[in-house]
Design a protein around this nucleic acid. Structure first.
Lengths: 107, 107
DNA sequence: TCTTTATTTAAGTTGACACTTAATTAAGTA
DNA sequence: TACTTAATTAAGTGTCAACTTAAATAAAGA
């Protein structure tokens, strides 16, 4: 799921779709109207976003409303934190970091 | 840079490289020895990671030591937070969220 | 300077995936 | 039972990038 979430986010169009959804839920066609892409293209992106847990959907008649799913983003950020969060890094890496700071050859 | 960072993270091998670097800095060949990939493949990944700001490098003779660059991850997480952080979502979306909670048809 | 070690750059191949149009499914309405 | 609206699934195409091996660069040692 996390891997799918990162993969989802890596495509600009999908990030744009998420941006649009920050203002509230929208139907597939409402989203499509904001892009210069075909409806199937948007539908395919929404499917990917849903399967990655970043977006949720509710049906209402023939319409399908899509919205941001916070839990998905929360999990994603937690996962990314593993790579750099000080409290999660090894003692060795922490020591190296300190060493670099002392030598002021940082970055 | 942020877009590059997300793109970098979207490839499993690059995430694995970052995992290996959590224990401290390593040379290109030390990293390559931990994978069943050619040295050039690893080198290419390291280049992408460096250009995306997730990894930093220092030269020492013919060796090149690579390490995690915290600032890159910090920026990345800030960017991702935009999509879901409550304080950054619109009033409309907040209201809809509240509405869904009340109807308990949430997820 | 020749050799060795560490690494990258060059060039080419292959698979994944973001698009397209056409066809299909699904729900509501006359 | 059509017809309309909303959306997806199917099928095909083209581009991109993750690999490969071979060649090039760069620093250090004999």
């Amino acid at each position: 799921m996390i891997q799918k979430a990162i993969h989802s986010l890596s495509v600009p169009t999908r990030r744009d779709i998420l941006s649009v959804l920050r203002n509230g839920e929208l139907t597939s066609s409402e989203i499509a109207s904001k892009f210069e892409l075909s409806a199937p293209a948007i539908s395919q992106h929404l499917k990917v976003l849903e399967q990655s847990g970043l977006v949720a959907m509710r049906k209402a008649g023939t319409k399908r409303y899509y919205r941001i799913r916070r839990d998905g983003f929360e999990e994603l950020v937690k996962f990314i934190d593993q790579f750099w969060d000080t409290s999660l890094l090894s003692l060795k890496e922490a020591a190296e970091e300190e060493e670099r700071r002392n030598h002021e050859s940082n970055d």
